[in-house]
Design a protein around this nucleic acid. Structure first.
Lengths: 199, 199
DNA sequence: ACGACAGTAACACAGCTGTGCTAAAAAGGG
DNA sequence: CCCTTTTTAGCACAGCTGTGTTACTGTCGT
């Protein structure tokens, strides 16, 4: 048997090179050759792991999704309900440099996926992530409600949607203007929002 | 003197062709030739109005910004304060097909502008729009406050930020999943938000 | 040692890219 | 009519694009 490399690890490494290229020069620069150069391999080697470009992009987008998922499911449910909720929300918003880079790339993927003639199935990757985030918001709002931290006159569905929109908007703002939207500022806003939901 | 065409109108027409291309096939397909074909002219003609591609993209992005600005400044300040605020907010969020298309394109521009090595000055166009929207939110919150429609324990700055994030997130949701996030749903959410600010 | 096969690099090809340049066409004023 | 200026189309060039194919290298089990 010949030399054996961890294919998944390799694919991930290439995908990360794609991230760097996209972050630095935008989606338009994400060619097979550029990515290969960024990863430090020949274009032929890259194409061995990803037969075509669409597959590469798909994989790279999916990788972001999986990482977010992993981060979220690693959060522990300890402490007061508002502490837990804040912990989840902070994890979703790109408050450090690494996650901000990830979000920038994600934004590029989303924009690309919005193209109607999506021959590549990027749209199919977008849906589940959006749903996952919504479900998270739903369970958080439900949790608040069950703990009596939600005013009775508020609709759970509506508050789910409002929270979801708020964190997506905040993530966007952090990405676009990191100077103005600092981590502590985000925490203030999230705290104010939760407080405004309390009875 | 030779035939005289309205240059600005022509440029706008070409920019609109760019929008259609970007919406249909994404930013990656926005080549001079593709856009020329979409606009129904030769590539040479397009290059007469836009010497280089970066200028074309810049102009097209700026055109979106100017349209949004125009729409906002056309809103009349009549009726109760909450009516006025709702009117502004609804105008900012892409609730009809035309504005949704516009927002999709805008999203692509934003993603592209996020690329660090932005030799094209897309970033410089992004800032003012973001600031404009923030200023709008600020004046709306201030208006609410002055009319006594804002609880006294709320910080104007914080509420400005929260409102801004909320509408950006909502716009995003409308664009990504128009089925779930209908116009009436958006109005419900905005209404609920304003109500939650009241004393 | 040898063979079998995973991994890598390199080349070829057709097509697209941005941009520079040039020649033709169109159109209004004298 | 013709001349001047604006507008349009087209070509050329060097370089990049995705992908198909082929030849090479390395490594492991036998």
């Amino acid at each position: 048997m010949p030399k054996i490399v961890d294919h998944d690890a390799r694919r991930e490494e290439i995908a990360r090179a794609l991230w760097r290229v996209v972050r630095r020069d935008g989606m338009r620069a994400a060619s097979v050759r550029t990515i290969a150069a960024e990863a430090g391999w020949s274009a032929g080697a890259v194409r061995y792991y990803f037969p075509d470009q669409a597959g590469l992009i798909s994989f790279a987008m999916d990788l972001v999704a999986r990482r977010v998922e992993t981060r979220i499911s690693a959060i522990r449910n300890e402490g007061s309900i508002t502490d837990i909720v804040l912990r989840y929300l902070e994890e979703v918003i790109p408050l450090d440099e690494e996650r901000r880079a990830e979000f920038d790339v994600w934004l590029s993927f989303v924009a690309q996926a919005q193209a109607e003639s999506g021959a590549d199935g990027l749209r199919e990757l977008l849906g589940p992530v959006q749903k996952g985030l919504r479900d998270l918001c739903h369970s958080l709002v439900t949790g608040l409600s069950e703990s009596g931290a939600l005013r009775e006159d508020l609709s759970i569905d509506l508050e789910t949607e409002r929270l979801h929109a708020l964190i997506d908007g905040l993530a966007m703002h952090v990405s676009i203007q990191p100077d103005r939207t600092t981590a502590t500022r985000v925490r203030e806003i999230l705290g104010a929002h939760l407080k405004s939901l309390q009875p």
